[in-house]
Nucleic acid binder design. Sequence first.
DNA 1: AATGAATGAGATTTCATTCAT
DNA 2: TATGAATGAAATCTCATTCAT
Lengths: 222, 222, 222, 222
Amino acid sequence: MTDKPDDKPDKPRRRLPRSVREQEILDAAVQVFSKRGYRAAVVDEIAELAGISKPMVYLYLGSKEGLFVACVRRESARLVAAFREAADAGGPPEGRLWAGLAAFFGYVAEHRDSWVVMHRQAPEQGEEIAGELAAARRSVMAEVTGLVGAGIAEGGGGPIKLGAEDAEFVAHALVGAADSLTDWMERHPGESPEAVTVRLMNVMWVGMRNVLAGEVWSRPEG
Amino acid sequence: MTDKPDDKPDKPRRRLPRSVREQEILDAAVQVFSKRGYRAAVVDEIAELAGISKPMVYLYLGSKEGLFVACVRRESARLVAAFREAADAGGPPEGRLWAGLAAFFGYVAEHRDSWVVMHRQAPEQGEEIAGELAAARRSVMAEVTGLVGAGIAEGGGGPIKLGAEDAEFVAHALVGAADSLTDWMERHPGESPEAVTVRLMNVMWVGMRNVLAGEVWSRPEG
Amino acid sequence: MTDKPDDKPDKPRRRLPRSVREQEILDAAVQVFSKRGYRAAVVDEIAELAGISKPMVYLYLGSKEGLFVACVRRESARLVAAFREAADAGGPPEGRLWAGLAAFFGYVAEHRDSWVVMHRQAPEQGEEIAGELAAARRSVMAEVTGLVGAGIAEGGGGPIKLGAEDAEFVAHALVGAADSLTDWMERHPGESPEAVTVRLMNVMWVGMRNVLAGEVWSRPEG
Amino acid sequence: MTDKPDDKPDKPRRRLPRSVREQEILDAAVQVFSKRGYRAAVVDEIAELAGISKPMVYLYLGSKEGLFVACVRRESARLVAAFREAADAGGPPEGRLWAGLAAFFGYVAEHRDSWVVMHRQAPEQGEEIAGELAAARRSVMAEVTGLVGAGIAEGGGGPIKLGAEDAEFVAHALVGAADSLTDWMERHPGESPEAVTVRLMNVMWVGMRNVLAGEVWSRPEG
DNA sequence: AATGAATGAGATTTCATTCAT
DNA sequence: TATGAATGAAATCTCATTCAT
């Protein structure tokens, strides 16, 4: 009666297995947490976006906090995977570095929600959430740091020794820049992630290379 | 009535003029908004931190939203002012650029609260707040862009023409990097903001300079 | 289909007849209602304890309320039966009285769950439940009153006439005492229900007998 | 407009000091907890009965659990006070015992709600509540036990030695009987608490006295 | 100018109950 | 016969906001 036989078979009140539903819920949750932030996000909206009722969300993920933690875990794993996959291809290290960074920028640009969930949440949401966020950031940052460090080591040989601390420094700068540059990309829709990567490499990698070669910037006399 | 004039002057129960009170409220509000985020911040905590009662907050700033808007306005004005002040000193342009950027990094590092209120708030909190945040961010970014653009124009002349778009690109990268590097600074307490600025200039500015001189990074064959 | 007939008989996945299943459900329900109270009891727990799924509970008993009513009916019937069985044995009346009361105390002590379901539930859970609880309590109390009354009639003959009202009074006191003494028994595990019965008879029955014989307590002058 | 000047001055939207309001809230809470039990009680009903809004209840007592604990504390203190006050009057011990018991019965009968809150709650409501209930019961029971023990000691001298364990036993029986007898009193409105006390003393005290005197009940041969 | 008292609206979370298979 | 999936309704608790003094 409410269900004419010629309805689309796709949407009508699906009865999905747990694992599929769970992923759909996480998809919705990432969107909402990203758009609103942890506190401002309301579980009702997540449920509605996932096409189910609120109690389902609680049945599957246990609590708003559990939901958020699951999001952070899944999304950070995905970003790290994208990174590794691109960077693990063979070839000279600088190329792998480029590929990893391009994948990183591409991912951050394309999955803004995902990135925002991991990176832009105030860390005052309680013990477990803070820990989970910190872990996610560490794992992302470690991946970038590793690649940068490899690139530095490879390009090394100049009079200046760049060590682990420098790799971390550059990784922080790159990650921050990438995050911020997604705003820029939004206003320049013509630019592909690769183009942005090249732009940034022009600024940062060439700089690094020259620093390795001994050219050091210092404040001009004023 | 409960307050004879010869009370001890120790617990002030101050009767401050509007403007002073208002600033104190804003001071408290910036702290709380920064620590908790807009939604999670509770007006009670702000009032308590300001040492007054909640109705006073409403009397002075009208609403939670008004309170937040006033914070954002004041803080962005301060950051822009720090900027201008440093960059407006005389001397060669590259020195003024350095000074401006160092002031920017220094400000972001030192006034974490202020910066977080402007930059780390989800921009989906309602019409007026979103607008105010966007305006604040734009005005900060414009200032950085201006400085970078001036530096580029000054150093320009190479075969590659860097235009307004490039300045904006670099500004976004710098702002994002500065933001992210405050995390790094927290874990490296020995490094002064100036030292961090130099580090970053080593990587980014030297790179930019060389790019201006025609040295372009391109993906190595792989 | 998922169930080939040569499955191991170990995890039964039993296909029980209605009546047996129903009793198992009631067993579980009595436990849970007793432990949590009517409102706090959750049907999920009852189903799990009974080893079946929740919809089966609804199929068999219709609703949480129906489930509770069935529990109360079955348990009060059991208590009354334990009573009658003990008291109906032959012998002198005082012995039958003792046997009945001992059975009562023993039942209350040993089937704590059963007793709690009948006696410790707030009687404000809605029309049908309140009625059922009242009926159960009345029927238990009637049984005790009957026994006590028989004992009194038997021993009667003194100057004081104990009537139906007195029997009811004593019955209430006995039932309340039995209830409360189960707490005492829990802290004195060495004492058997029969020993407790004797103790109480020492205090109450001897008192009653003497009262029947004309010895009346009155407040001493003070 | 909603408030004609000739309204009764008694009810209209009072603005009470904290301590008074708090007592009113507790009054309402005792009623509701008693009628419904802890879980079934809803804070809305308590608030309405207290004539205020729900948030006030939370402001004053913190949580439903805190509310309940406060009730139990206040009510058990009151009952114990009623007891002590009556029993502390001078005179021979048996009279003080009678007075204490009469006060106890009177209090339980008159403040049924109070008593039910302390005595009839299932002890499965979580750590703090269980502890609070246990403490309340212990303090009430200790008071009764003390008086009974004093009475026993005073009357002692017979061949049978009644000790602390017996006093506890009798106290449990008395308390349980008193609780149950309030039901009986409800159906016999003509009987005063003192009359009920006398009735019970007739049954229990005379029994005790005779037991002290060596008359022991034992099961007749059957 | 200042505040203690109060509340309406909305957040998270739970649970009895029913589909669809 | 049996159940995994799903939900409407209601519970506790929080918070921006306003009275009454």
